[in-house]
Nucleic acid binder design. Structure first.
Lengths: 177, 177
DNA sequence: AATAATTATTATGTCTCATAAATATATGCG
DNA sequence: CGCATATATTTATGAGACATAATAATTATT
């Protein structure tokens, strides 16, 4: 029987699947592995945050507000890459639970300043510790050095795109200055 | 004024937020960086797959079916960590588009064997190449060695959890054999 | 003063993932 | 055999995160 050209070096697929499953083209892709690892860490963070009545994006917002008192919803949304309409409901919930305050600016009454309350600050610190612990559980296999290197590699990916969206081939117009 | 205990070494938050935004407790967390990088790669993969009328999970399924002819929906779902009810709609779509065939097993008529069609195989190979190219665009900043190391680190995270769900502290009963 | 731009919001839709319940078939046991 | 139990698939449904269009309030610009 003529073998279809196989673009992989791994063992040839057998006629009917046995109990071991081979991975397709996906295992060699970084994005696939990224997602699998992300699922693990996200589930851990989610479970830890849940104990404080927070979801992960909500905690992220709280965390940035803690660190940037007086930040506006717009700036917060842009920084966390959240669409502003989606941020509204998060901020609403944080305010309702009295974890942050939302005060209208006097110089520009369209804008609001977000500041954390004492209660919010306390909850944040506790949640942050719990999430860090949960993460550490997942990262036992990695030494501190590995961990730092991983973060560095991830940041390279994140930043590469925001700086140079396309390169060399396949764009029509001349590059903007 | 008494400074609240700050659990970070970075610059102290200024009264009202300037144009630079500081990151909270989150930037030091692996999960956060993981997500940011994942968003970049996933968007690239998604855009590439879209040209072939595929979404990322659909492509992943197709890819595993290509590599494991005759695999059952259950095995496929378990392998990709997709819930079976969600896999149904994906398989439905793949079958409707005649990219795969779904044949009932004679020995056990509850089960189905999934096999790729010629058309599906062709589409898969083209899409895989496009997605790989799109990924490569995102990974220009990383050498081949960095890339391999990244995948290795990610796999460690993924596997650490499936092997040793909890460690040492905080579980009540004795470990199963 | 009139127009345009900005901030925040409301309404709405999509995508991914998760759970409960229903159906069809197979297996084990009296 | 007949009945309870288990498994594979499917249907229905909901939650969570993300995205876009339209609106309201305010400010900036002409």
């Amino acid at each position: 029987m003529p073998r279809a050209r196989s673009n992989s070096t791994a063992p040839t697929p057998s006629a009917s699947s046995p109990d071991t499953v081979f991975e397709g083209a996906i295992r060699g892709m970084v994005g696939y592995n990224l997602k699998r690892a992300y699922i693990v860490l996200h589930a851990a963070a989610r479970a830890a945050a849940e104990d404080f009545g927070l979801r992960v994006p909500t905690f992220s917002c709280l965390s940035v507000i803690v660190r940037n008192p007086g930040i506006t919803p717009s700036a917060l949304a842009e920084h966390l890459k959240i669409e502003r309409p989606n941020l509204v409901v998060i901020v609403d919930e944080l305010e309702t639970r009295e974890l942050i305050r939302r005060t209208q600016m006097k110089t520009d009454r369209r804008r609001y300043e977000l500041t954390v309350t004492v209660r919010g600050r306390r909850l944040h610190d506790q949640a942050a510790e719990a999430i860090r612990d949960a993460e550490a559980q997942c990262l036992q296999g990695l030494g501190a050095e590995d961990q730092a290197r991983l973060i560095d590699l991830l940041n390279k990916i994140e930043n590469a795109m925001t700086e140079a969206p396309v390169s060399a081939a396949e764009h029509t117009g001349p590059p903007p200055p």
